[in-house]
Design a protein around this nucleic acid. Sequence first.
DNA 1: TTTAGCAGTCATAATACCTGAGTGCTAAGA
DNA 2: TCTTAGCACTCAGGTATTATGACTGCTAAA
Lengths: 340, 340
Amino acid sequence: MDDRKQQILRAIVQEYVSRAEPVSSKNISGKYGLDVSPATVRNEMAALEKMGLIEQPHTSAGRVPSESGYRYYVDYLMEKYRLAMQEENLIREQMDPRAAEVDRLLTRAGELLSQLTSYPTLVSEPQMRDRTYKQVKMVRLDESRALLVVLLSDGDIRNYQVNLVGPVEDGEMERISNLLTEKLKGIPVNTVEGTLTEMMAGQNVVSAEILEDVLKVLAEEMRDGETSTVHIAGTLNIFNQPEFKDMEKIRSLLAFFEHQKALKTLIDSGQEGISIKIGEEVALENIAELSVITSTYCINGKPVGTIGVLGPTRMTYSRTSTMLEKVAEGLGISLIRLMY
Amino acid sequence: MDDRKQQILRAIVQEYVSRAEPVSSKNISGKYGLDVSPATVRNEMAALEKMGLIEQPHTSAGRVPSESGYRYYVDYLMEKYRLAMQEENLIREQMDPRAAEVDRLLTRAGELLSQLTSYPTLVSEPQMRDRTYKQVKMVRLDESRALLVVLLSDGDIRNYQVNLVGPVEDGEMERISNLLTEKLKGIPVNTVEGTLTEMMAGQNVVSAEILEDVLKVLAEEMRDGETSTVHIAGTLNIFNQPEFKDMEKIRSLLAFFEHQKALKTLIDSGQEGISIKIGEEVALENIAELSVITSTYCINGKPVGTIGVLGPTRMTYSRTSTMLEKVAEGLGISLIRLMY
DNA sequence: TTTAGCAGTCATAATACCTGAGTGCTAAGA
DNA sequence: TCTTAGCACTCAGGTATTATGACTGCTAAA
């Protein structure tokens, strides 16, 4: 793979990405530092096609990068995109940690990224694997109901309603609160189910029943908690992409966006840091010609969630991945500020 | 407007609604109790067209109801749709009040309705004008923070974090809790701001500061609470409607769905009970040929929110409005059960 | 090794043509 | 007076035909 071929491949990718139309030999000769005639470019193109890096939609058309062509481009030819001052400022401004809520910040990050890139974006919620209980408290609401207030190690506060089966005195309620805090403090939330028998030992009937109810509620919540949602933004941007000019494609993609579970597997499969998946590598049923760029975002250096951008294989890989990187970075910083 | 003309108009509307193609004279003669030849039907059609109730897309096409045609149909000709057992069961089943949360129930109602009708649906959150406080309780989280638990008259439970400026004893905290409950019980949430001075009287500095903070939090929440969201479901159903086979139309409608404010004005403008708006009556910029059927839903006989269906002017008015009515009814019943 | 030139290919657009569905009108029949 | 058969007319939508022009691959000369 000599220098000029690389140059031509890069030219084809960049030209095709920006114009969305097959690139002809004439089209790039003269530009991109190619001081050769179209005929020469054609010869090189023929070679690149033989290597499987570009292809022809039909005989009398220009060339289009193949998926391996994009892959080669991303791996070896892509130049680093430099953010404009304006873009940097926008990110700094929008990722302001004063946005008081985690959910809100995630939504913001997604919207910002989709605004910057003009592609749909996905943001998964931070998964705190080492999240533990810190304090559990029961508060009476009325004769038959109590509120269970749960403090978690990451500062999150949750509360749930619990039904009281019979009359319970205030002192008894406090005793149960203390017992719960004592037994649950420091244990990871996903192991809550195992603590029941231990806690039941030596309890009277009423308290035992309450405890059982409490633990059922907590266990259920943890299961629900695992099904954290993926935030989506900018879905309508796909209308701008000529590859989705077909109604059925748009429809199936939009339907896909409503499928939380699929979104999660799509976005969470990546390794740490930036990951670029092109076309077939995405492996989505019914939806082809799609690329996904994802980045984990970190809290205290630990990756806790993923943020990603979704576009046609013909996407601005360089620009988009830089944007993504910066937004993921900003998101992580803001999250830390938010929590401590 | 004689009997046969009405019969023919009804036939045209029904036929066009189900087939989405201009209705010819031959098409309805013989059916719909019309024992006359196509030629006779044609004569009547000419009359109906002169009245502005039907129109011709082009010379050699059949007839299509005009907007006034639909209006006439809805006002005078529409037959009551009878729900199938299956449909009634589905509504009963899905509107189960065990769905423990208001938001969840609203989402359910929207999804159910869109499933039943195959149209997108909108549900506004219940606006409790006469919502009052029932109980307010402070619970210590740690030295510097407390949780404020607020019970509202409609059964809703909210909680907020409050910062404690200095050390506060448990007894003092309980005293504040009792004071808050005593002073706020029964007063409407939107008048909370007026109670500050009254409560401050005779308080020591620390407690006064806490109280001020509490009331600030409550007041802020009430302002936020006013910006309730509209739940949307089944948006992708519009892809099934031939009137939206055009990409631009789909796009602008989907964009509209993301515009919370516009949705609210669209859905909330109706009077009590069922309201049917047809075409121009909807008065939406950029989006034509749209009808909206809305119904208020009630808690204890008072309308507190709106649920609506959105479809092409060529929509199944009878069937849809009946479905809507039943779901709104079920929603109201479930909400009451949920709250008391 | 590069390049000009030329023949060949094929998608797309434009055009003409055909078909069939549906109407309005007229005149005859009930 | 109302109804209906029949006929001429209209027009959207489909199909076949024909340009057009944007590219390429190949050849042969520089």
